[in-house]
């Protein structure tokens, strides 16, 4: 059944490795990603690894020109990926580095903390303690530049997204929704419950490594005294 190969557009294909986010699925997504980085095809542009999928973007004109016979670029790319997938097995190692993220919880930094506490039937202190005691892994970067999806929250903190989106939260807002936590790298609208804020810059388009966090990294939140 898995992997499932699908064409997304004339310039992208999407491979699905499972139906729920778990370590073995993550490892397969990143195994193929690593293979592709080591053996790219002419016209390869980039990949977007996600919870269950690896999306591969390419320049269809370059792929077309690399072929001796006229061929459909997306199909050429799928064949390349199937060949890589069939290659020698190797287990994608999970990165071991741990990043500590300082957070000011509550007050003006976490405007949704009181409401979140009420809905979860917990005290604000309980939420801060549960959130900062959990070791998270960055599952993927997506949604906006440098935005990390980190999981998983303890069951006691799981809560659906907000019904009404906050039109503007500041850069560094730390938020929770579902079984995930995130940090908004830029000022943006937010559908997650903002419980705190970090002073760290998560994304710098001019830096050699633009994202502070990358998929696979481990993260722990460190409560700061206001």
């Amino acid at each position: 059944m898995y992997p499932k190969y699908a064409i997304l557009s004339e310039s992208a294909v999407c491979i699905t490795f499972g139906d729920k986010p778990e370590t073995s699925v993550w490892q397969q997504v990143h195994r193929l990603n690593t293979c592709l980085e080591q053996q790219p095809f002419p016209g390869f542009l980039t990949t977007v690894p996600a919870f269950l999928t690896l999306t591969v973007h390419f320049d269809p004109f370059e792929v077309f020109r690399s072929q001796a016979q006229p061929n459909i670029p997306a199909r050429v790319v799928l064949e390349h990926l199937k060949a890589l997938q069939a290659g020698p097995e190797h287990l994608q190692r999970l990165p071991e580095n741990l990043i500590e993220i300082p957070v000011w919880y509550g007050g003006t930094f976490g405007p949704d903390l009181p409401e979140t506490a009420k809905r979860l039937h917990l005290s604000e202190a309980d939420i801060i303690q549960l959130h900062s005691q959990t070791l998270f892994r960055v599952w993927m970067i997506g949604f906006s530049p440098g935005f990390p999806y980190m999981g998983f929250l303890p069951a006691a903190l799981e809560l659906p997204r907000k019904k009404t989106i906050s039109p503007k939260v500041p850069a560094g807002s730390v938020a929770i929704a579902g079984n995930m936590t995130c940090i908004y790298p830029n000022e943006s609208p937010a559908g997650w419950h903002v419980i705190g804020q970090t002073p760290l810059q998560l994304f710098d388009p001019h830096a050699p490594n633009p994202c502070l966090l990358n998929a696979g990294m481990q993260v722990r939140f460190i409560p700061q005294k206001a």
Partner: peptide
């Protein structure tokens, strides 16, 4: 449904809003 790759031109069907055709500044997932 778990976030996955999208690109300009993708038609996404949200739970409680009109479907959207993603355009140039669309998010990556």
């Amino acid at each position: 449904f778990f976030s996955t790759g999208v690109c300009p031109g993708t038609i996404q069907v949200p739970l409680s809003d009109d479907p959207a055709i993603l355009m140039a500044d669309a998010q990556t997932t």
